[in-house]
């Protein structure tokens, strides 16, 4: 295979595990984007890749660079922070925009009125 950094075996195994798991979770999220039946159900799919997928790959990257440069390198935390704060904002905005549009156009997706609050 083409070149890859020369890490000790334990680090290589750990990094491999984290990035493959992260990529797999992201793939499942994207498959969900394709398979789920309607828009509101699809809203749940991207957050798989944005939480566990991103987190796992970033942990792999952190281990890799920390071992390579033999000092803790944690700037990947920034990406994780940005992604966990920004993805919910975009998803919420999209959900609200979509409910608004569907209600104006009278589509069957969202209920006309908010459903009755569930009481415990």
């Amino acid at each position: 295979m083409s070149e890859a950094p020369d890490l000790p075996l334990w680090a290589a195994l750990l990094v491999s595990f984290f990035i493959v798991v992260g990529a797999l979770v992201t793939l499942i999220g994207s498959i969900g984007l394709w398979r789920l039946p309607d828009f509101y159900a699809r809203l749940h799919a991207p957050s798989l890749g944005a939480t566990l997928g991103t987190g796992s790959i970033l942990i792999g990257s952190m281990i890799c660079f920390s071992v390579l440069q033999s000092r803790p390198l944690v700037h990947e935390v920034l990406i994780a922070l940005f992604v966990t704060i920004t993805t919910p904002v975009t998803l919420m905005l999209l959900a609200r925009a979509s409910v608004y549009r569907d209600r104006i156009e009278g589509n069957p997706g969202p209920p006309e009125q908010d459903p009755e609050p569930t009481e415990l």
Binding site: M1, A4, P5, D6, L7, P8, V15, V20, A23
Partner: peptide, 12 residues
């Protein structure tokens, strides 16, 4: 270990 890492990066 570069081989393991290389293959798993390709898989990812």
């Amino acid at each position: 270990s570069p081989m393991i890492l290389g293959w798993s990066i390709t898989a990812a």
